[in-house]
Nucleic acid binder design. Structure first.
Length: 486
RNA sequence: GUCUCCAUCGUCUAGGGGUUAGGACACCAGGUUUUCAUCCUGGCAGCGGGGGUUCGAUUCCCCCUGGAGAUGCCA
């Protein structure tokens, strides 16, 4: 049987790192096995549905280069792929369950449920429905139904059974049926299915072979097994993925840092770095290799090497991956990624002038080794395009030197800068060395004030290259400017 | 509370009855260098505890501990 895998997000929030990891495993498993990757929208919670998250889903998938074979916009013979468009189907199957005696209508009001819950809490009993309506006589149930009373459909959980399933990652998992929540709701009052019903019905109808989902679903899988039994269907294979944690071992959340895919995109992470890092969170290839292209993953990903235990998300390592990928990337691509940022920050005009574009292109060498994320670029390049707003004089004064000495050094720089453009870097360096000897300081002590004069900071790209790009004459202006302020 | 899952350096992981327990990030030190970064070299650091099984357990089994998740008309 050919592999069919689905990613089934519910559009109630933005795609976060856990979602990304799940669909990456879905996708690459499908690809590596020559199977189909299906996108299904689980919008069964009307109250939490939100349009923005739907757009975010598509944006995220597209950004990371993940395409699907079937989905809302790609009919593949198993549609519709949006659960809110399949309501009749779920109702039909719920009715079938009732007709077969596997489920029943429950007319208990929310008020009764709340009261029950409170009583259970007071008596320190286990929570759960007391099966009041399961014990209704058929006539009574029918009468209430015909009276138009609102109801939900609940599955009858059998007593005294052990429900087992085999997880492809975790192995055999068992649970006693009495530990499964008594008689979970399948169909809500509003006619929408719960996750459990919709998921089981759709996975079966869409002939899903492997269900990938987070480990938080393990406790409800026995329930799903019971549902497959009630329908007389063969369950798919289950693959419960380890959870992603924050540094403190708690479930990853905002307080650990960014968690939404779009935030990483906005910060200037490359999609391939993101994919590579995320796939390594819970999966490994061997004892050393850790760089994988999209195509390689689509060939090499497998279930055997998926880890069982939860993984802590390491922002530092992601950053390292990103730096590695930026350095390997085509310069033009990286420039095009930060070009809009330069415009946004008003560093260059919009549209850029010809001179600005040339300078952006020529200056790439200044940043390529220094970028961890794309968004670092504006800060590194700003000095080439904009005047230094204010000098921190202290920065300009090297260690073991004073203000006067620094002034003298800067004046010395002016002499060397004269005719700078006409000489090679080697020649210029030699001149700076001579000058520093003449002034009785080290080369670093002469270059630091110059660096501050040109860039406004003590940390910058290499001096000579920067001077060449910016122009020796204009550099001299900045040096004079700084001297005047000292 | 109850149920379920998990457990190798700080983090991601490889390994597996006999290994100097391997790699990567981070960190530290050194080198290259005009600062930063890159790059190179080296270093620090780990099998949670207790019982078994065995000639021998980090590896297999049990218990404990620790961590996480689930206990919704949310997914």
């Amino acid at each position: 049987m050919s592999v069919r895998v689905r990613y089934a997000p519910s559009p109630t929030g933005l795609q976060h790192l856990g979602s990304v990891r799940t669909f990456l495993f879905d996708y690459f498993f499908a690809r590596a096995n020559g199977g189909k990757f299906i996108l299904r929208i689980e919008d069964t919670d009307q109250s939490r549905f939100n349009e923005e998250s739907l757009q975010d889903l598509y944006d995220t998938l597209n950004w990371l280069g993940i395409d699907w074979d079937e989905g809302p916009d790609k009919e593949g013979g198993y549609g519709p792929y949006i659960q809110s468009q399949r309501l009749e189907l779920y109702k039909e199957y719920a009715e079938k369950l009732i007709a077969d005696g596997k489920a029943y209508r429950c007319f208990c009001t929310p008020e009764r449920m709340e009261k029950l819950r409170e009583e259970q809490k007071d008596n320190k009993q286990d929570y759960g429905y007391d099966r009041h309506c399961r014990n209704l006589s058929e006539e009574e149930s029918q009468r209430l139904y015909e009276s138009g009373a609102p109801y939900v459909v609940r599955l009858k959980i059998p007593d005294g059974r052990e429900v087992a399933f085999h997880d492809e990652i975790l192995g055999d998992i068992k649970r006693k049926s009495r530990d499964i929540s008594p008689d979970p709701v399948m169909l809500k009052t509003d006619g929408f299915p719960t996750y459990h019903l919709a998921c089981v019905v759709d996975d079966h109808l869409m002939e899903i072979t492997h269900v990938f989902r987070g480990q938080e679903w393990i406790p409800s899988t026995p329930l799903h097994i019971l549902m497959y039994e009630a329908f007389g269907w063969e369950p798919p294979k289950f693959c419960h993925l380890p959870l992603i944690m924050g540094k403190d071992g708690k479930k990853l959340s905002k307080r650990h840092g960014s968690t939404f895919a779009r935030e990483f995109r906005a910060m200037g992470y490359l999609p391939e770095a993101m994919v590579n890092y995320m796939i390594m969170l819970g999966w490994s290839y061997d004892d050393t290799r850790e760089f994988f292209s999209h195509d390689e993953l689509a060939e090499l990903f497998n279930l055997e090497r998926v880890n069982k235990s939860p993984a802590v998300f390491d922002y530092k390592k992601l950053e390292w991956f990103n730096g590695q990928y930026i350095r390997k990337a085509d310069p033009e691509r990286i420039q095009n990624l930060y070009l809009p940022l330069l415009k946004e920050e008003g560093i260059i005009s919009d549209p850029p002038t010809e001179d600005e574009m040339k300078l952006v292109k020529d200056s790439y060498g200044l940043v390529q080794e220094r970028l961890k994320v794309i968004n670092d670029a504006p800060g590194l390049l700003r000095f080439l395009f904009k005047e230094i707003e204010s000098y921190n004089i202290e920065d300009a004064i090297p260690k073991k030197m004073d203000r006067e000495g620094t002034k003298t050094v800067l004046k010395g720089c002016l002499e060397v800068l004269d005719g700078f453009a006409g000489r090679s870097d080697e020649e210029n360096e030699e001149l700076f060395r001579q000058k520093s000897e003449e002034l009785g300081v080290k080369l670093g002590q002469i270059l630091q004030p110059l660096r501050v004069a040109l860039t406004g900071t003590t940390v910058s790209p290499p001096m000579f290259e920067s001077i060449r790009l910016f122009g020796a004459e204009r550099t001299m202006e900045r040096v004079k400017n700084l001297i005047a302020q000292m």
